[in-house]
Design a protein around this nucleic acid. Sequence first.
DNA 1: CAAGATTGACGAATCAATCTTT
DNA 2: AAAGATTGATTCGTCAATCTTG
Lengths: 156, 156
Amino acid sequence: MTENQTLTGDEWALWDLWTNAQRVFAKYVEGALQREFDISKAEFSVMVTLHRATRAELRVGDLAEALAWDKSRVSHLLTRMETRGFVSRIESGAAGRRTGISLTPNGRRVAQAAITVHAGTIRRYFLDQLSLEQTAAIRAWSEHLVVSENAGHDEG
Amino acid sequence: MTENQTLTGDEWALWDLWTNAQRVFAKYVEGALQREFDISKAEFSVMVTLHRATRAELRVGDLAEALAWDKSRVSHLLTRMETRGFVSRIESGAAGRRTGISLTPNGRRVAQAAITVHAGTIRRYFLDQLSLEQTAAIRAWSEHLVVSENAGHDEG
DNA sequence: CAAGATTGACGAATCAATCTTT
DNA sequence: AAAGATTGATTCGTCAATCTTG
């Protein structure tokens, strides 16, 4: 539990270093998407989800669940992406005339290219920088956290 | 360099796990500040910087530099924090009647308590979860990235 | 009215433009 | 005019309210 605690200088330094590294890394990853395709991380996430989907059309709720986002966030973003010609909202006549979302041909083209660039950035600044030990360390810590969330954790 | 690249399933899984862990961790850290003090991460950052400062008053530019933020962001945030009674903008008569920023008594009290809670959260979800090897791994990767930024990196 | 989606209002961050002091 | 700070416009995300379909 969170008793009265403070961090030592070393602990603070590690924390500070780590948060800074995250910031720098995010800057590289998102900067590449912005520079080369003028898309945000959020737009990229939607593109990836649509691109990977086996079904041709996804619903807003599917996207929201896959991305763990608010439905309204998805809806707002889709409106902007529709304006820019990346996605289209279509009628899926099959299972009850619900609105379906799909990438436009142009959106699909951008998605493909962005995924490649994104993979390169991750490789360059993340995967290629990690030794086996570092990979294991990151995996272990990450798994612990993600599992703790799914398990529901006892909050103070 | 970023040639035509894709990620293997394992690589993608590691990346996905890691980004998820970051999200979960941020949720814990920021959630605690929000829940217990109703302050955002940004407000906390300003409080910490003011609290740690040796000088009694900092200028907007000092805060902006320390936090690596836009000056206007600092200014906007200070306006909100001033409204909430956390900070005050005062005249520092000494070195040329420039506006100085300082924590109010209440702001200082909240800052102190928030720093303690924050330290506890970091301990619980970050420091206590890391073995020596993991700590070293994270430090090495972080240092590499942060140094690469300061050195200026060659952008493909 | 329940589920799914959209819309509007607001808070917060960014960028450009403006104001102030020397 | 240069440095420092603020302000305004725009954009994105969140929350609550509304619209729509069955």
